[in-house]
Design a protein around this nucleic acid. Structure first.
Lengths: 197, 197
DNA sequence: TCTGTGCATTGATGTATGGTAAGAACCTAT
DNA sequence: ATAGGTTCTTACCATACATCAATGCACAGA
């Protein structure tokens, strides 16, 4: 996967003008994380949003039995953060971790809230992010309520074909809400179905 | 349940001043829905947010097998809308329906976006709503991934004891992602556990 | 090259939840 | 009070998915 800089992302996906983008760039910095490093730990308070320039990140939680549950993957061009912690300045409930060597464009919340106050363009951009997030979360809930493991897997393949190839199946299973063993069986059963056609 | 007007809601939950609240009131209206009436149908485009003054509303979808899946309940003091449809002006994917006789304070999106541009207080209020929604959705996903039907039911009881008493168990089951029969068994098993202690 | 470590697969078996069908309990309207 | 609808429960059986344990495989490090 190629690197995507935040500035090209903004140029092609928003109405923000050159001046605004340049200002953003001046106040932010790029950080590098090795595979396995944490961008945010459960219990920390989150102060920034993370734009993934290169690499891959996951957000996940650990339940009382020690099992991991993945809320989200974020590859190049995605923004990931703990919105609850960020907005309410409370300890984060989830971890954010690099699962490949990753370069992150760090956007401090302080800067965001400053820009939001002064530039309505930027407010709109932020608003769009929130709405996209809500749409995505709602769709996921609906799927968890209505679809079988197999259907959820098929939908995952279709929606995130790129991610599928970059993460271990264990993590895909965790995202889908099933065990790795079950995912293996789902895949086997699907491959059988394809050959029969 | 007692009626909650939008203006008292705003007074006690936001920073909005009297003038702003008065302006909002002037441009909005209250609508009444009978039990079973639809505030929004799948396929319609949503143009407003619905503040529940009195009564109870649900948002739900129907899958290809004809089964209903409830995304959300909204009792007095809650705001419900189809954010995707509202923001992107696309056809709604879900229904919004009154499940009691309900009085709704209708907030046109056009008004919201006008106020958002001119009054930063109102922008903040709107932003808070979006963040609260995201927090709630994320928590729900995490529960669907990690908790058993019994645990989800216990959590529902704890979080929405009022709603539990006002909706048929069929709907609670649909919200939890299980069948009414399973919910009945979960309840039976729980009542057994309580007596044994 | 050997070896360890993590990941994927498989089989045997267990458990949670679903499907069906019947009846009981409860509303509501006449 | 009766009838007709809906909701809830229960019993029996079916299925989806989990758990446990063993094996194989690939790849990184000594």
């Amino acid at each position: 996967m190629n690197k995507i800089t935040f500035s090209t992302f903004l140029t092609s996906n928003t109405d923000l003008d050159e001046t605004m983008i340049a200002e953003l760039m001046r106040h932010c910095r790029t950080l590098f994380f090795k595979k396995g490093d944490f961008l945010l730990r459960q219990g920390d308070t989150c102060h920034a949003s993370f734009f993934v320039e290169k690499g891959l990140v996951r957000q996940y939680g650990i339940d009382n039995e020690g099992k991991e549950h993945i809320l989200q993957f974020a590859p190049e061009g995605w923004i990931v953060t703990d919105r609850d912690s960020l907005y309410n300045k409370t300890p984060a409930a989830y971890f954010i971790q690099a699962i490949e060597d990753t370069s992150i464009f760090l956007i401090e919340e302080e800067l965001v809230s400053k820009l939001t106050k002064s530039h309505s363009n930027f407010t709109t951009f932020n608003d769009t992010l929130l709405h996209n997030h809500i749409r995505q979360l709602t769709k996921r809930i609906y799927q968890l309520l209505s679809a079988s493991a197999e259907d959820r897997y098929l939908s995952f393949i279709k929606t995130y074909p790129d991610i599928l190839l970059r993460v271990p199946q264990t993590m895909v299973a965790s995202y889908l809400g099933i065990t790795p063993e079950s995912l293996s069986r789902v895949r086997k059963s699907l491959s059988g179905k394809n050959f029969k056609k």
